[in-house]
C-alpha cells in the first residue's frame, strides 16, 4: 500500500469522524440552566466554581504524577466512581456529617502529600483519595439545581472533574526535571495552605 493512499485513507477517516460529529449539533441555549445543554453547563461548571474543589482535584493529579505509574493512571479511575457514590448519597439526601471540613481537609492532606513528596503504597493512596472523593461528590450531589437535566448534569460534572485531574497530571509531569519537582512541591504547599484557609474559614 503506497504512502499517498495511506495519507488519503488517514485523512478520510478524520473527515468521516468530523462529519459524524456535525450531525449532532444542537440549538444554542443562551445561558439557560434548564434543558439538556443547561444541565451539562451547570454540571460542568459546578466543580469549577469552588476553589476548594479545584485545588483538591488538581492535587490528586499532582500526587499521582509524584507516585508515578501505575498510581498516576489508576487514581483518575478510582476517583470518579467513588465521587459518584458520594454524589448519589447527596442526591438522595442522606445526611453525612462534616462535609465542608472533609473538603477542606482534602486540600490540606493531599497538598501536604505533594509538598512532602509522600509515596505510600498504591492501596493507601487509593484509599485516601477515595475517602475524600466521597465528600466532594456529596457536595456536588446535594447542591444540584432542581431545574437541571439529570443526565447531562452528571455527564458535565464527571467530565469537569476528569479534566481537573488531567490538568493536575499534566502539571505533575514536570517532576521529571529538578526545577519542575520544586515547582510541583510548591504547588502542593499552596494547595495545603488553601485547604487550611478553608478549614479555618479564612476564605
Amino acid at each position: 500500500m503506497n504512502k499517498s493512499f495511506r495519507e488519503f485513507s488517514h485523512t478520510s477517516v478524520h473527515l468521516f469522524w468530523m462529519a459524524l460529529l456535525l450531525l449532532f449539533s444542537f440549538n444554542a441555549s443562551a445561558h439557560s440552566e434548564t434543558g439538556v445543554i443547561g444541565g451539562f453547563a451547570s454540571g460542568f461548571m459546578h466543580p469549577l466554581r469552588g476553589l476548594d474543589h479545584i485545588v483538591a482535584m488538581v492535587a490528586v493529579g499532582l500526587w499521582g504524577a509524584f507516585l508515578g505509574a501505575p498510581a498516576m493512571l489508576v487514581l483518575p479511575v478510582i476517583f470518579p466512581m467513588v465521587m459518584a457514590v458520594g454524589g448519589a448519597i447527596g442526591i438522595l439526601g442522606i445526611p453525612l456529617p462534616g462535609i465542608e471540613t472533609g473538603i477542606a481537609l482534602s486540600g490540606v492532606i493531599l497538598g501536604s502529600m505533594v509538598l512532602f513528596a509522600v509515596q505510600p503504597p498504591l492501596w493507601i493512596a487509593g484509599s485516601i483519595v477515595g475517602f475524600f472523593a466521597i465528600f466532594h461528590g456529596y457536595a456536588h450531589g446535594a447542591e444540584l439545581p432542581n431545574a437541571a437535566n439529570a443526565i447531562t448534569y452528571a455527564v458535565g460534572f464527571v467530565t469537569a472533574t476528569g479534566m481537573l485531574h488531567l490538568g493536575g497530571i499534566s502539571l505533575g509531569l514536570l517532576v521529571r526535571w529538578p526545577w519542575g519537582r520544586l515547582t510541583v512541591r510548591a504547588g502542593g504547599a499552596m494547595i495545603a495552605l488553601t485547604g487550611f484557609a478553608f478549614l479555618f474559614h479564612l476564605i
Binding site: A84, I91, I151
Partner: peptide
C-alpha cells in the same frame, strides 16, 4: 477511565431516579 466515567454517570442518574 472511560469505563469509570460511564459507571459514575450511571450511578448519578440512578440516584436521580430514586430521589
Amino acid at each position: 477511565v472511560t469505563g469509570s466515567w460511564i459507571a459514575a454517570i450511571a450511578m448519578l442518574v440512578l440516584a436521580f431516579h430514586f430521589r
